[in-house]
Amino acid sequence: MSFLERLDRIDRRWIFLSMGLAVAVPIIVIGITGKTFPEVATPTTRGAFDAIQSLPAGSRILLSFDFDPASAGELQPMATAFVRHAAARDLDIYCMTLWAPAPPLLDETIRKVIVAGHPDLVYGKDYVNLGFQAGNESVLKVICTDFRQSFSKDYRGTPVDQIPMMAPIKSASDFDCIVTMSAGYPGCKEWVQYIATPALGSDDEILLVSGVTGVQAPQMVPYWPRQMRGMLGAIKGAAEYESLVNEFIKGSNPAADIGPQFMEAQRRMAPQLFGHLLMVGLIILGNCIHFGRRRALAGGAP
């Protein structure tokens, strides 16, 4: 067996090991140095940031945590940044989820961002956690006309009639902005289909913003910028948005401390860079083997 053949049939565990190292080493280095790469926002990310930035203080923003722990690596930094941005802009924050495994993630985000970072915000007046509602897209169809039919109580079991900030909410169109952080079904596509699209062109047009996983991004781009005003695609989109939010917070309060917990996405860009470089290297190597073997075959042919 020639060298090229041996290389072509390399045990894939060597590739796994290379990928493990390409990701682990930058994680350790960033953990020690705390340094991250600068980010320049792409138009889709800028659209998401500008949409939230354009809302006047006191506007109502609905955040839907449509993901599970498996995809939290990509989507949790987006969720943290969206909640921070909304809290920093003094928006009324409504949180919900269509995914059964999401409530603990939602609860954790609220505790980490609002309870710890904005102790002045009052539950029920400035923010509310509506928890999980089963039914996938049928929940969305219902909240289009009657929000309370799907969410009659909050996460703690308090009837929404007793929650002051729920008083003006009759249907989804009562929110000034809706943000969905989506890992699949039900998620961004369903929000576009059942919430944003029916209201297009009407007086109740809904400002929809989304954060999606990397594999979903190409599928959702066709809906930008008409149905969705902005979109964060994968951890790269999260890093760009996080960077914009941190700049905004620093701008409005230079003394603000931006801890590593608020730079999660940016800290993940270095492992992503080295992972991508390894992939490029592997593809080049694979092609060298391919052409090398083809040449050898052509040379050996009678």
């Binding site: 990928m19 722990p69 498996a70 390894l278 593809i283 694979g286 092609n287 052409f291």
Partner: peptide
């Protein structure tokens, strides 16, 4: 949470292996 995250993270390894094997001009 850690088990499902680990399963999802496996994608990075499988993508690398698939790219090496299948991505040829």
């Amino acid at each position: 949470s850690p088990i499902t995250s680990t399963m999802f993270a496996l994608l990075a390894f499988f993508v690398a292996s698939a790219a090496f094997r299948a991505f040829r001009a």
